[in-house]
Nucleic acid binder design. Sequence first.
DNA 1: ACAATTTAATAGGGATCCCTATTTTAATGG
DNA 2: CCATTAAAATAGGGATCCCTATTAAATTGT
Lengths: 207, 207
Amino acid sequence: MLDRDVGLDIAARLFWERGYEGTSTADLTKAMGINPPTLYSTFGSKEELYRQALDFSIARENSRRSEILQSNLPLYEALSLYLYDIADGDTQPDKPPGCMVSTAALQHAEENTSVARMTAALREASIQTLKARFDRAVGEGELPTATDTDTLARFYGAIIQGMSAQACDGACNALLKRLIDIALTAWPGKRQTSTGNSDKRHLDQSF
Amino acid sequence: MLDRDVGLDIAARLFWERGYEGTSTADLTKAMGINPPTLYSTFGSKEELYRQALDFSIARENSRRSEILQSNLPLYEALSLYLYDIADGDTQPDKPPGCMVSTAALQHAEENTSVARMTAALREASIQTLKARFDRAVGEGELPTATDTDTLARFYGAIIQGMSAQACDGACNALLKRLIDIALTAWPGKRQTSTGNSDKRHLDQSF
DNA sequence: ACAATTTAATAGGGATCCCTATTTTAATGG
DNA sequence: CCATTAAAATAGGGATCCCTATTAAATTGT
């Protein structure tokens, strides 16, 4: 019998690289080393397996990223670490590039609308997490009262999605972090230098 | 006989909405009102049709956007208009949401690697266009000499890709433009207000 | 060790994938 | 008006899609 978590890990990796439509049940059963009936008795259907693989993958990253974001570091620095962690996730050498969720099912066949709604809801949830953290900062006086936290969250959401896309196109970790450094100059109240960002250090940032 | 441009327009719309893998040749022939042999004699193959539909669509937008970007407006203002035009393209009411290229083939089956390379090259080309414009500005003293134009171009490229993703998820035009306004505060030398951006006007910006 | 039950493997059904050989229809030329 | 060429429609080939009914193997209980 197949270990459930091992199967989900294998499935997640395939879906991550090839997307929902680009991954066949034959790919999945072959990679897991099982026969088709086992896939269906264990996971229900291809769509249900995708849902479980997404949950499984997200659960692994969420605890660490939530800790970063909800820590009592200054929000600007917490956000920096949060984005850097995502950049690291986008460029793991032994994993597919990009984010499994950010770039999933944006274009899709009509018959896969429910799958697309699922990934869209996950993206929206991660934006709402950012917004909630920004709202807390407004309440605590760390951000100006007039801050448009919704748009600010969607702005960094766009950065996250753009990083994933560029990682899929081959961008390296250092590039994504330089990109983050620019995005961070848009932080309310920050005043960016007008002299390139190539002198910033990413590996041993100290707080 | 089928008019070639009409066919490409119909094909582009389908590929735009459903992606390469999510669009079948049956969808295409049905939408064009032709039989399969006509598709293959006119366009060669599904992949070749996709390539031609991309070229066809890009050609339509490129002239206008190139004019905006290469105009002799201050670069900051030209870039604003350029991004606004893309936001408009992402949210046309009678067209699929998002950008046909930005969100295309990021995840794909192994057999469609050549298609993914094609769309990645198009995305890279549009980033290089931005970078070239930024380099020109450096040469003309409009941007500081030390500006990291490559990363700056990829930053706005990420914004463009993020906008497309969020448009696919239902974002409206006004939201994308508020998002652009935040991205523009990252422009070298700019100093953003710390008071939300909700008071900005988008429809009658004067230069 | 034999029977009962559970697990795995095979085989395949019905639909759709991309593409094309063949036939039918239409248009053109003498 | 008939012969020739060109266009469109049908029909289908070989592969793959997601999923499952059935058969074979392994495990369990007595």
